[in-house]
Simulated assay, not measured.
Amino acid sequence: MRRTVPALAVSLAAAFVLTGCTASDTTPPRAPAGVTAQAGSATSVHVMWQAPATAEGVSNYQVFQAGRLVRELPADKTMVDITGLAPQTSYAFTVRARDGAGNTSAPSAPARATTPAVRAEDHGPPTAPAHTTGRPDGPRSATLTWTAATDDTAVTAYDVYQGGVRIHTAGPGETAATLTGLQPDTAYTFTVRARDGADNSSPDGPAVDVTTPPSGGQGPGTAPTGFAAAASPGTVTLTWTAPDTGRATTEYELHVNGRPVTVIQFGAGAVPPSGGAVEHRLTVTEPAGTVWVLRLRARLPDGNWGAFSADQRIVLAG
């Protein structure tokens, strides 16, 4: 995928450098922590867990119900809806992590939830939560609060959305949630929807903006580091270190002279690792002597753009 402005002609050819690979790996990752389960309707339960540290090397997750595998998910997913369940039934779920070498963790602690009774002919959604507030709790977490919604039967869950994607589910009696796994120095917009036992969702409540503070030494930042550019005839070679976000970064937005000119995308087989070294080559047709000021930012795991790298000034070669 490429986006360009008319003033620049840029074609892409990418490569990346991986370091620290091991020949054999027999150590399983740790069991996922923070597993929770919340009934979303009479026939579904929302299961969530915490993302592991980068060093765990998790490639996918397995979700079990009563010892039976019910879902498998890639490493970038840490929540799932388990559907097709029975109303008014208690369920227990566990999650296992698997790494790229096929090692599987022990099961997590079980998370339990009970589905509510089914409500026949319930087609009316709940009202939207009327008021939402939010505040950062540090560089990597935030707390949201909202007013309770109403429904003709009963509200069974509240879903928190960020960028149009559900990132958290809270119980029917909850009007607050702590959101973790955020990035420092990043602006977020959250909305909350109410849901009833028939899976009818309310409209979005009012959006609330939360900006996390800089990390202040409490964790890695979101900007690519060590950004450098070298010009040769017809080519510009970019190198940088991917931000250590805990997930592989697949997209970078390149700005030239203050304007976005292209999104650099890496395919599934060529994804630079979190905190890994990256090299990217641009084939250019601008005349020699053209001055470029370049900067780069990464698409974060939550869909936001991270902070910009330091600027690099280069003169194109002939």
Rank of each mutant, 00 (worst) to 15 (best):
F93D: 00
T94A: 05
T94D: 05
T94Y: 05
T94L: 04
V95W: 00
R96F: 00
R96S: 02
R96C: 04
A97C: 09
A97Y: 03
R98A: 15
R98M: 14
R98T: 15
D99F: 00
D99P: 03
D99S: 05
A101F: 05
G102T: 12
N103H: 14
N103F: 08
T104G: 05
T104I: 15
T104P: 03
S105V: 13
S105W: 06
S105I: 13
S105N: 12
S105E: 13
A106Y: 04
P107A: 11
P107H: 09
S108W: 05
S108Y: 07
S108G: 10
A109S: 14
A109M: 11
P110D: 11
P110S: 10
A111P: 07
A113R: 00
T114N: 08
T114S: 15
T115Y: 14
P116V: 04
P116W: 01
A117F: 06
A117P: 07
V118C: 08
V118K: 12
V118A: 14
R119Q: 08
R119S: 11
E121Y: 11
E121I: 07
D122L: 12
D122Q: 13
P125H: 06
P126C: 03
T127F: 03
A128M: 04
A128Q: 02
A128T: 03
A128G: 06
A130W: 05
H131C: 01
H131W: 06
T132L: 15
T132S: 15
T132I: 15
T132H: 09
T132M: 14
T132V: 15
G134W: 10
R135C: 00
R135K: 07
R135F: 02
R135H: 07
G138N: 09
G138S: 08
P139L: 05
P139I: 02
R140N: 11
R140M: 11
S141R: 06
S141A: 13
A142C: 02
A142P: 02
A142F: 03
T143V: 14
L144H: 07
L144G: 05
L144C: 10
T145F: 15
W146V: 02
W146H: 04
T147A: 06
A148C: 10
A148G: 12
T150E: 09
D151R: 00
D151G: 00
D151W: 00
D152H: 13
T153S: 01
T153Y: 00
T153A: 04
T156M: 10
T156A: 07
T156R: 15
A157H: 05
Y158P: 01
Y158I: 04
V160A: 08
Y161V: 08
Y161D: 10
Y161T: 09
Q162R: 10
Q162E: 12
Q162A: 12
Q162F: 01
G163S: 10
G163M: 09
G163D: 10
G163I: 06
G163T: 09
G163Y: 07
G163P: 08
V165I: 13
R166G: 08
R166K: 14
R166V: 13
I167D: 01
I167V: 15
I167A: 01
I167S: 01
H168P: 03
H168W: 09
H168M: 11
H168K: 14
H168F: 13
A170M: 06
A170Y: 01
A170D: 03
A170E: 01
A170F: 01
G171Q: 03
G171T: 09
